[in-house]
Nucleic acid binder design. Structure first.
Lengths: 196, 196, 196, 196
DNA sequence: CACTAAACGAGACGGTACGTCCCGTCTTGAA
DNA sequence: TTCAAGACGGGACGTACCGTCTCGTTTAGTG
């Protein structure tokens, strides 16, 4: 068993454990058993021990999440649709994916810690994508005059991630509510409103 | 030593320890020593143990933070100023307050966990305050037609907290940048723009 | 449970384990379980860990052994009887005492190591006792002329312990053989022979 | 590298390690490195693993020791000289040989364990040699009447080995003391005394 | 002179014990 | 009674070593 496969196997086991028992309730022994390897090997492959294992677990899951989201919004025709789909995807994924569900429910810290550490990168990816979509909107004349595209892309990315991460605001289960939120609030200052 | 004073004393000790050593590096024994009480008493006053101690520590610090912020924006003349002051206050406070600084630097999880758990309440407070400010703006005719005041207040609260919590977006150290962000982006969809 | 009692309890457990499984096969966990205490407490009471536990176990057992031997030979009428009884006692004790038996059978090292370290003390005690017995013999005129009492006592002690420890020489199970060995060989150069 | 040479090489490495670090502080990896071979090969040549390696190391060293001693006393003219030379040789060898020195100093157990296991054989060799010397003494009329040659040889062998192994008794560094001990005590019951 | 067979080096792996640390409970004395 | 002091059981951690094993690679010996 070579390096990458071994690490992946451990991460898979760690994810299973965390899904069931949460972070605080998951022991290195549990992870090793779930991965079908020995505890010694886990420490060989993750010299950082428990912390490194969980950090890597979260990192992998978050990367997977954003990758899937990128695919889900790739062919959206316009900015509003892009954001709607992204929020909708996030909602469905968080509901459907038991692992992420449990990750957030039991102990959100490591996930959030990682999100914090990697926030700059994540924000950059999302902003980049949004900027290109915004450029198309601008070319179509649907952007308010005086709006800086870079700033606007960053703003939408920031707020979008925030809304996605904190379920308190906006009922993501309701497509109509999402549409209203996106078009009436989030993008109102950027795009030329349809009913303006 | 009666209940509330005892708890406060422990929380004070816990905050000192966490400021120096972070959450993971702080032991219940450390907290007891820093508070000048015995470990047994700590468990008597915080039956939930370690978790309860740190949760309460964060809760107290967050409450203090928002209380001070409320005072800082109490006499702002309008919505934009309110939000600007709030963001500016948050920036200065986070820079000045070594405890919060360390809290976020060393291990942001418990803080974030708490912010997550108590997000609804915090959002409610902020939203309530903003709603009243918004009502005054509406009375002055500075709110775009068709804007739902409740929704708008919630939106501003959501995004404001998000920007405050995540230092990636918008340079809070620069008042001009904050002003631009608030007026050009955050409130552009709500208020009648100055240059509209 | 105070210090000495706790240590004694652990030593008791250690002795039981070693009797059954030998030194190499006995784990600190085994000792703790046999003693009915936690492993943590074992390390509290024996900061030296495994090594200290076994050293103390052997020390206690050896002390007990020599204490009993001293009592067994206390009222012997003369030197030959003293040595005979000591050897007989050693033989019976080693046969009867399952613990010592196992101690020697499974892994004699720690026992021998201790015997080696404490050899000076042991030799001193035995020599002291023998010297007083020898003095009585000398007073009765049964010591060969020219014999140095101190040297003679040391010689008998040395050889006696050696014979006792190494079962190869002299069949200790046969009182007659012991008597012959003691009187014809061990003491022949010291006492005036009966048939001389 | 064939079998015997390979084993010898490992034993040499093991002896070096033990001389420096003692038994407990020597790892199979250490031995392999000191021998300039791989750990796998060590286990190929010593299927018994660690225990077999150290047992063989001690066995080799002990055999070497007794072989040299046999040569040292081969041409002694009489019994007393034989024993004197043997004891003197043992003393010098133990002082000069750093390996044996360290072996005994750091952890005497394996050495003693081996000495114990092989005691019968060792005793047999020594006894056989002494018997032949004693027969010559008897032929010369220097043995006390009534002395059983076999018993006497065994007695001298037993006590001689004991004195040699336990430095407490008799100052082996002082030839005069050794001579006195041998002639006045050890052999007093066997040989016709010179001054008798 | 290729070609097989064995020996060897290198190192991953499971298993297990070690010693440390911390948590949460409990008991004991003193104020 | 309330608190300080601290012992205790429990359990996870990270480390280290053992003994087994699988790979290539090298070295001999043979047809």
């Amino acid at each position: 068993m070579s390096g990458p496969e071994a690490r992946a196997r451990v991460l898979r086991g760690a994810l299973d454990c965390v899904t069931r028992q949460g972070f605080a309730g998951t022991t290195v022994t549990d992870v090793a058993r779930a991965a079908g390897v020995s505890r010694a090997s886990v420490y060989r492959w993750f010299p950082g021990g428990r912390d490194e294992i969980f950090a890597a677990t979260v990192a992998a899951e978050v990367a997977r999440f954003y990758g899937a989201m990128a695919a889900a919004v790739a062919d959206a025709p316009d900015l509003a649709t892009t954001v709607e789909r992204a929020l909708g995807f996030a909602h469905r994924e968080l509901r459907a994916n038991a692992a992420l569900q449990a990750l957030l429910a039991t102990e959100p810290e490591p996930l959030l810690r990682f999100l914090d550490h990697e926030y700059a990168a994540t924000l950059g990816w999302v902003t980049d994508h949004l900027r290109s979509v915004l450029a198309a909107e601008a070319a179509a004349g649907r952007v308010r005059p005086g709006v800086d595209l870079d700033q606007a892309a960053g703003f939408v990315a920031t707020v979008g991630i925030s809304v996605m991460a904190t379920p308190g605001r906006c009922d993501l289960a309701d497509p109509a509510a999402v549409a209203t939120f996106v078009r009436q609030e989030l993008l109102a200052g950027i795009l030329v409103g349809p009913g303006a």
